[in-house]
């Protein structure tokens, strides 16, 4: 299963450690007109599957100023039925069309028996699951002709029969497939709040060389549980985790995510600039 990086052609880590934001279409006009001082834009891959040509041309224009990465929510890397061939075909098409600097997906599943559940559902961390995820990641990377980054998720329940923790599971996926990692600090924070999972244990457990990107976002408390809503500012504990992550794993491109109760663009830009300051401080110290 171990895949030589040369198998993906001449793909190299293409961007320096810089901060950007998740592009949500209500902000598109503001970004075009104000040209905010950030470095990158990340778009949900599925939003590009059937994008109107006029919007696609506007994205092309933005790529002159910002790097573009794609972040998928629907490939279902943990599906026991394997990858959906049509979904993968469309993902390959948008990657070929937009040539993003990075492509990422989640360590989760959402498809079974030809039903797609619109959520990021948790996987039991077993050897069986590891084999399935590694096969699916390998299939995706082969089709895309590049490594993808796999993101840790927030979960709202745990399986009693887990055979390893998330860091070990992801390390094994990296070892078997040569994939990259996208470390979401808010997801670590949410899992710590809900289950007492120590974030530092995760940061110490994943291979630093594989970390290709960080995500920062804000959670919400609903009925006593913390939910990864992407509806609030990045909280201070997540900023602290981010600094720890950069110190432990090194600097990497960083995206501010905000999906619900979308604030003005300036709010996201401020947070991206704060992340950029963390990256700069790390670079200066190094």
């Amino acid at each position: 299963m171990l895949r030589d990086r040369a198998a993906y052609g001449d793909f190299k880590h293409p961007i320096p450690a810089q901060a950007g934001i998740g592009l949500r279409f209500p902000h598109l006009v503001d970004i075009e007109t104000t040209k905010p001082s950030i470095y990158g834009l990340e778009i949900h891959s599925e939003n590009l599957f059937s994008l109107a040509p006029a919007i696609a041309r506007r994205l092309d224009a933005l790529r002159d100023q910002y790097w573009l990465s794609l972040h998928g929510v629907g490939l279902s890397l943990g599906s026991a039925d394997g990858l959906d061939a049509e979904h993968l075909r469309r993902l390959v098409a948008v990657v070929d069309r937009y040539q993003p600097v990075m492509v990422s997906e989640h360590l989760c599943w959402n498809r079974a028996e030809n039903i797609t559940l619109p959520d990021l559902l948790p996987l039991p961390l077993t050897r069986e699951t590891l084999g399935i995820v590694a096969a699916n990641v390998d299939a995706a990377q082969t089709a895309l002709r590049r490594p993808i980054a796999v993101e840790n998720i927030s979960a709202y329940l745990q399986y009693e029969y887990d055979e390893m923790d998330e860091a070990e599971f992801l390390s094994q996926v990296v070892r078997r497939t040569g994939c990259k990692l996208l470390v979401d600090l808010n997801n670590l924070h949410v899992n710590a709040l809900n289950f007492g999972v120590a974030p530092q244990r995760f940061l110490n457990g994943v291979p630093a060389h594989a970390v290709a990107e960080y995500h920062l976002a804000g959670p919400s408390e609903v009925g006593g549980a913390w939910i990864d809503t992407h509806a609030t500012p990045v909280p201070e504990p997540v900023w602290a985790l981010y600094a720890q992550a950069v110190a432990t794993l090194g600097a990497a491109p960083t995206i501010i995510e905000w999906d619900q109760d979308l604030p003005p663009l300036a709010t996201l830009v401020d947070e991206a600039q704060r992340a950029q300051a963390v990256l700069l401080a790390y670079a200066n110290a190094a």
């Binding site: 599925e46 929510v73 629907g74 279902s76 959402n110 039903i115």
Partner: peptide, 8 residues
Amino acid sequence: PPTAGDLA
């Protein structure tokens, strides 16, 4: 129920 990953 949805059968594809693109809810749009």
